[in-house]
Design a protein around this nucleic acid. Structure first.
Lengths: 105, 105
DNA sequence: TTGACAAGCAACCATTAGGTTGCATATTAT
DNA sequence: ATAATATGCAACCTAATGGTTGCTTGTCAA
């Protein structure tokens, strides 16, 4: 779980995931196109995404294809974010109450 | 958006949010209890959460109370994660197809 | 088989992040 | 007033992060 959060913390990596969502199965070179970063930098980002299990790869000859795995993101939504969404209105009510009602100082 | 992702990337900070979710409106000292970290470290984490708009504060005398704001988390779920959940099954189907069906090399 | 292409590996660098320590400030209770 | 409490501020340190460069390896096409 921590690896996923860490992986998602960088905007370049989120951009890479976005690209794969739009077109899955791209090779490294394709993913590098248009980015102001060296190939090596992209490689490192992709490795981090792989270690977080957000990206799976497959060789086709000399080409390495990258596939998005949205499951970890789904799990975060399910196991973590939902906790906070559940209490959303409640917490907002609390906040309002505390910021307004309690202004006695 | 980036600040929120960055803020959520650290497990200590996620823990602090958890604590506030369980009991909202805690002061610094309370949030420090039981953590193997100095008060200053916690302060820094809370500042990062504040800058990401995940935590709001309010002074009551010399005590600084901290309130959870789950809205940014909700927005991430809405604007970002849903994109990936939407295509989840599709992408998994693609992945399966590409990993199995195409094994001609 | 030679050259071009796709990617890997390793060393290095600058910046940021997480954490500590020491001291200052403001509020409360005695 | 004084002491204890609750927090802030600033400097400092180490390790991790994001990035670069140079060189090597493997694969495909001519």
């Amino acid at each position: 779980m921590d690896k996923v959060f860490k992986a998602l913390a960088d905007s370049s990596r989120r951009k890479l995931l976005d690209r794969l969502r739009i077109r899955n199965g791209q090779m490294l070179g394709e993913l590098c196109e248009g980015l102001s970063m060296t190939r090596q930098a992209v490689t490192k980002h992709l490795h981090i995404l792989q270690r977080a299990n957000l990206v799976a790869t497959r060789w086709r000859g000399r080409e390495k294809l990258h596939y998005l795995n949205p499951l970890p993101i789904h799990e975060i939504a399910e196991r973590w974010i939902k906790k906070f969404e559940h209490g959303r209105l409640q917490v907002l009510a609390d906040l309002k109450k505390n910021l307004e009602g309690d202004t006695d100082g």
